[in-house]
Simulated scan of single mutants.
Amino acid sequence: MITPEKLSTAQRETAIHELTAHGWQIVEGRDAITKRYVFADFNEAFGWMTRVAMIAEHMNHHPEWSNVYKTVDVTLSTHDVAGLSALDVALATKMDRLAG
C-alpha cells in the first residue's frame, strides 16, 4: 500500500479551486474539505452512501460522514498526513460523479 502525502501548496490551491467549483468548502480550523449532498429521499441517499462505501473501501480511504433522511454531510481529510492528500481529491471527485 502506498503511503499518502499531504498536498503541496500548489497542488492544494489547484484542488481547492476545482472542488469549490463543485460545492466543496474548506473546513475552518482544519485542513479538510466538506460538502452537503441532498437527495430526493432516504433511499437515494443511502444507496449513494453504499456505492461510495464500496469505492472508499477499495481505496482504503474512508470519509467522515453523517446521514439524516435525504441529507448526507461529508468531510474528507487524510488522517495519516493530518491534512488533504490526493486521496481526498480523488474520493471527492468520485462522490460528485456518483451524485450526478
Score class of each variant (00 low, 15 high):
3 T>Q: 13
6 K>Q: 11
6 K>F: 02
7 L>T: 00
7 L>C: 00
8 S>P: 08
8 S>H: 09
8 S>W: 11
9 T>S: 08
10 A>N: 05
10 A>Y: 02
11 Q>Y: 01
11 Q>F: 04
13 E>G: 00
14 T>L: 12
14 T>C: 01
14 T>E: 14
15 A>N: 02
15 A>Y: 05
15 A>H: 03
18 E>T: 12
18 E>P: 02
19 L>I: 10
19 L>N: 11
19 L>G: 12
20 T>K: 15
21 A>G: 15
21 A>M: 15
22 H>K: 11
22 H>E: 03
24 W>L: 05
25 Q>T: 15
26 I>Q: 12
26 I>T: 14
27 V>D: 06
28 E>L: 14
28 E>H: 13
28 E>W: 06
29 G>F: 13
30 R>M: 15
30 R>G: 10
31 D>Y: 08
33 I>Q: 09
34 T>Q: 15
35 K>E: 03
36 R>S: 13
36 R>P: 01
37 Y>Q: 08
38 V>C: 13
39 F>I: 13
39 F>A: 14
41 D>W: 01
42 F>L: 06
43 N>Q: 12
44 E>P: 00
45 A>Q: 07
45 A>P: 06
45 A>E: 09
46 F>I: 15
46 F>V: 15
47 G>W: 04
47 G>V: 10
48 W>M: 13
49 M>Q: 07
49 M>D: 00
50 T>S: 14
50 T>W: 01
50 T>D: 01
51 R>C: 02
51 R>A: 11
51 R>H: 06
52 V>G: 00
52 V>M: 05
53 A>M: 03
53 A>D: 01
54 M>Q: 07
55 I>C: 04
55 I>A: 09
56 A>P: 05
57 E>M: 02
57 E>I: 05
59 M>D: 14
59 M>Q: 13
61 H>E: 08
63 P>H: 11
64 E>C: 10
64 E>L: 14
66 S>D: 08
67 N>I: 11
68 V>H: 02
68 V>E: 02
68 V>R: 05
68 V>A: 06
68 V>F: 04
69 Y>F: 08
70 K>Q: 07
76 L>D: 02
76 L>Y: 06
76 L>H: 04
77 S>G: 08
79 H>M: 11
80 D>P: 02
80 D>L: 14
81 V>Q: 03
81 V>D: 01
86 A>M: 06
86 A>P: 01
87 L>H: 13
88 D>R: 05
88 D>M: 11
88 D>F: 09
89 V>H: 06
89 V>P: 02
90 A>R: 09
92 A>K: 09
93 T>G: 01
93 T>Q: 04
93 T>I: 01
94 K>G: 02
94 K>A: 11
95 M>R: 05
96 D>T: 10
96 D>C: 03
96 D>L: 04
96 D>K: 04
98 L>K: 07
99 A>E: 04
99 A>Y: 03
